[in-house]
Design a protein around this nucleic acid. Structure first.
Lengths: 218, 218
DNA sequence: GTGCTTATGTGAATTCGTTTACAATCAAGG
DNA sequence: CCTTGATTGTAAACGAATTCACATAAGCAC
């Protein structure tokens, strides 16, 4: 499922889910074809960048015509492995964690939070939006049994590293880290940081120092 | 307060709050000096990159010695404008918005959510963690009166663009957008996107296609 | 078919960011 | 005051990502 394909630039890889989402919406609105210029307008990525991104996968379009929506949809569905549902564990069911189990953006896509863990006894044993909350002590057993290899980390930052160590030990290979801690993990494990207060701080810095500029991020 | 300083690369600017936070923690732990190598270990940024980043602001350190923590702290406090508190509005008090008003990461730093807006009458008039929730109809008056120029956008995606238009009209110059919508705004307004489901999707893509690699993201 | 229009795919140029590698400089210790 | 060891600051090399610009090919109209 991996390695033999040509390596896609990371910047491109990060945009794929964005493309996929918009193509889905085009498809469900019944559109048949789309040009890189239209895509550009919608996802706010330069049209040349879009064509270049697509070209890493070969010729997906036709000159003078554009891209066939159905075909693109099909292609991205396979490329992003959308047939298979990825089970995700949520570690730390505080305010932010609670928002994630409730938020339905995870029920779409191919990712699904199937279990939550917390140390708080009053939460353990409950179910939130259908997701059972277990005690962190049960993590090893449950993670291994269900072969969960992606976790969302929303614990207090003091626990971030030790919990991450546990997760790695239990077989997790991807962590979406919402704590401010910069985790140390083996390089077989992929960590993406989302640091909310840093995002806010840097937004403010940009506002003050780059009065007009195109949006950044991702 | 801006423009005359030399332009800092965006990649550097995004790391400044990260540096600042760690320098704060060094300072409160009583450390007097720090090298780029130590900083590197803590924030997981190559030490040469750190030295390069710092060098855009002139010579902050001393050769053979490193950086004086007190001095760095002072410097970043000014550079990141930490004396002044930035008031932030939260637009959309759903699950995610609720997490933000409760989360104390905003009470630290120099940013503070001072008001929330929602269309749900049952929320309007209440106070959450000390933050008053108003009806969106009052947005114009309150935003202008309090001269709030930063907003966190956590509304349902269908409302994202119209609400953003309103915000811009009321004087907002920075939006932290948590909706999947790609906003169209004048280029005097800065938007940072945090798209949670895309982050998760791209994490999974990277796991599957780049089995071992250093962490990306911010 | 023929020609016109459109929009792709990509080589080349450019911009942006990171990393190497080292001369310059300073602190500290004798 | 001299030497040693440490660590900066940056020039140059490299690498990644974006953007320009256009030859090429496909659709479409007549």
């Amino acid at each position: 499922m991996s390695q033999n394909e040509p390596k896609i630039p990371q910047a491109t890889a990060k945009r794929l889910p964005l493309y996929y989402r918009f193509i889905q919406s085009l498809h469900s609105s019944g559109k048949q074809r789309v040009s890189s210029a239209e895509l550009s307008e919608a996802v706010k990525v330069d049209s040349a960048t879009i064509r270049r991104d697509f070209s890493y996968f070969g010729a997906l379009g036709k000159k003078g015509y554009g891209y066939n929506v159905q075909y693109l949809l099909e292609f991205f569905r396979k490329t992003l492995n959308q047939d298979e549902i990825t089970n995700v564990a949520l570690v730390g069911v505080g305010h932010l964690g609670t928002a994630f189990v409730n938020y339905n953006f995870l029920k779409n896509n191919n990712t699904h939070i199937v279990v939550g863990f917390d140390a708080d006894e009053t939460k353990v044993g409950t179910t939130m939006s259908g997701v059972p909350i277990h005690h962190v002590d049960e993590m090893e057993q449950i993670m291994k049994q269900n072969k969960i290899d992606v976790a969302i980390l929303t614990v207090p930052s003091a626990y971030a590293q030790p919990v991450a160590d546990d997760l790695v030990r239990y077989g997790v290979r991807g962590i979406l880290n919402f704590t401010p801690a910069r985790l140390t993990v083996p390089d077989t494990v992929r960590v993406h940081h989302i640091d909310l207060s840093i995002e806010l701080q840097s937004l403010i810095y940009f506002m003050q120092h780059y009065p007009s500029a195109e949006g950044v991020h991702q």
